[in-house]
């Protein structure tokens, strides 16, 4: 039996909103030691999502037997919208489940709502992603990155990212003209989360599809900062750290013809 209780429903609500536009059907893997993990690839095979919710992400977590919960994220989103952000959220499944039980309790315990969601058999490819060495790592406020990704998409379908020792340059070029945004490394002593950190082994020049970057920045509601790991000509990693877990996106680059 699986019983995972979140201190507040808002984490799951934000997670599902962040990924449901990229992937529709996902297998949630549940185990006592690993908690809940998920790997899903978008239909175009360009963007991969990897989620880890350690047992420590939960107020209470119990999973007697490893389980795979195949869920339609559209449906899960509909159910999660029924609960308030500050409600307790508990996910419950039997050992060979046909359904996932989703229970919301308001903190005053005078309202309990229960939903049963049908599970699906989902046949999906799982890719083996080893820890990669990257040419550079950038950590910046997730809202800053979201703004650049959204703004630059209005200029072009592609966003070029150039990283040097102390700055990151985002460039877009399209039918109406060109644009660039330069972000410089700095340390904010008052608020560390506002700092911009660049670790560089080698300068990087990579291009990504703006559409995918706009999907990725939907996760900026989950973490105040995002870490972007880039290497020339290989997929980039975008990581949003959660308390006791992470949401990672791997994005295949675009190459010049």
């Amino acid at each position: 039996m699986l019983e995972g209780k979140f201190e507040s429903a808002s984490l799951m609500k934000r997670l599902v909103e962040a990924i449901k536009d990229s992937v529709k059907l996902c297998n949630f893997n549940c185990s006592q030691t690993k908690g809940i993990t998920l790997q899903a690839i978008d239909d175009s095979r360009v963007l991969l999502i990897s989620l880890k919710l350690d047992p420590g992400c939960f107020e209470g977590f119990r999973c007697d037997k490893n389980l795979v919960l195949g869920l339609d994220l559209e449906s899960l989103s509909k159910v999660l919208k029924q609960g308030n952000n500050e409600d307790y959220l508990t996910l419950i499944a039997e050992d060979a489940p046909d359904n996932l039980l989703v229970v919301f309790e308001d903190p005053k315990k005078d309202r309990i709502s229960e939903f049963s969601l049908k599970l699906m058999d989902i046949d999906s490819d799982v890719l083996s992603i080893e820890d990669m060495d990257h040419d550079c790592s950038i950590t910046l406020p997730s809202s800053d990155f979201a703004k650049v990704a959204r703004d630059m998409r209005t200029l072009s379908e592609s966003l070029q990212i150039l990283v040097t020792k102390d700055s990151v340059k985002f460039m877009a070029s399209g039918p109406i003209g060109t644009g660039s945004v330069i972000i410089k490394a700095h340390t904010d002593l008052k608020d560390g989360k506002e700092s911009i950190k660049i670790d560089l082994n080698k300068s990087v020049n990579v291009t990504f599809g703006a559409k995918y970057l706009n999907d990725i920045v939907k996760a900026s509601t989950l973490a105040e900062t995002v870490t972007i790991k880039l290497t020339n000509k290989i997929p980039a990693l975008f990581e949003f750290k959660l308390q006791g877990g992470y949401l990672r996106y791997y994005l295949a680059p675009k190459f010049d013809e």
């Binding site: 690839i41 991969l48 490819d125 992603i129 295949a252 675009k254 190459f255 010049d256």
Partner: peptide, 14 residues
């Protein structure tokens, strides 16, 4: 113009 690559050309299936 630039071509979109696929993750499948970088990562193997498990």
């Amino acid at each position: 113009a630039s071509n979109q690559t696929s993750l499948m050309s970088f990562f193997g299936k498990k």
